[in-house]
Design a protein around this nucleic acid. Structure first.
Lengths: 159, 159
DNA sequence: AAACTTTTTTAGCCAAGGCTAAACTGTGCA
DNA sequence: TGCACAGTTTAGCCTTGGCTAAAAAAGTTT
């Protein structure tokens, strides 16, 4: 178990001051907001991937890849439909609306940037995939841009 | 709105293959697991910070900093108590148990590493704080170690 | 000491996202 | 053609984590 206390400047020794209460609250609010959209985005992204890769997105496959039951997927699909992100007729495959496609594309891109960034930092593939899945929804546009630039510079340097 | 499609190797162009279903499911399961402990850790970390910084952790302050109502805090405190992370007598300040202190310390360290890493990447302070808050629970030990090393090397280079 | 204010707690509502069980639809094969 | 099985949907349960409203305790002020 690493302790990060060997020597040199220690990044875990941040300035010990707490942010002012309102700013602090905004930080947590941002996390809560992210959580609300997170799962929606994951479903939409996965449906997009399945459509691209397998030609269709069936509830069974979504359930298997999400690691949840089909009943859970069915209800989520209804919610996505309510929000105008997918179209679905009973017992048929699921398709993305224009908005759904846009969200899937956005999500896929964001996911890709984070994943490649982690890899270019030197994180092994399996770990990078897990971390990217969790991190992707919490990375701001600003940070995403910086990650993208970093990855590109690393790749260039690696040539 | 950045498109990440200017030129050069594009990190968003990841290999298009989906992971095998079981691995994919494990990734999502990891995210769900993280979500379960996330809020607990945030509360414990905040309580630890308040104890260190203000000498006591009162429900009002926790509520203000979390950006939620006191009723929400009260119920969460009971849950933390049930899990053996805090001790509290009615109408008194809250304290951490040994386990709670360990979790707070762990969390604080992790948070610090991620925050400093983002800063040393060049992310502005306000953004780094928000992103760190969300990312911290989704960063594996492996990645955390790499972030820590990166930050130290950057700081050294910056001298 | 009594009254008022603040803090804490409790009770109860709601939505989200898991689950199981059971009903229903569609498909493929005898 | 009809039947069995796989896939899908619905119904209903549970926990979590927000909320408001109201009760109870603590603290403060006159």
């Amino acid at each position: 178990m690493p302790t990060y206390s060997d020597n040199g400047p220690d990044p875990s020794e941040q300035d010990t001051n707490l942010p002012p209460p309102e700013q602090h609250a905004r930080q947590y609010a941002a996390v809560r907001d992210a959580h609300e959209t997170e799962l929606i985005e994951d479903y939409v992204e996965l449906i997009g991937d399945l459509l691209d890769h397998a030609g269709e997105a069936r509830a069974t496959d979504i359930a298997a890849r999400m690691g949840v039951r089909q009943a859970t997927v069915a209800r989520m699909i209804r919610r996505l439909n309510d929000q105008g992100l997918v179209t679905n007729e009973p017992y048929r495959s699921i398709f993305l609306t224009e908005r759904g496609r846009a969200m899937a594309e956005e999500s896929r891109k964001r996911h890709g940037v984070v994943l490649q960034f982690l890899r270019s930092l030197g994180v092994d593939d399996a770990t990078a995939r897990i971390d990217a899945e969790g991190m992707e929804h919490h990375v701001s546009e600003t940070t995403l841009g910086i990650m993208h630039a970093f990855t590109r510079s690393q790749n260039k340097a690696g040539d």
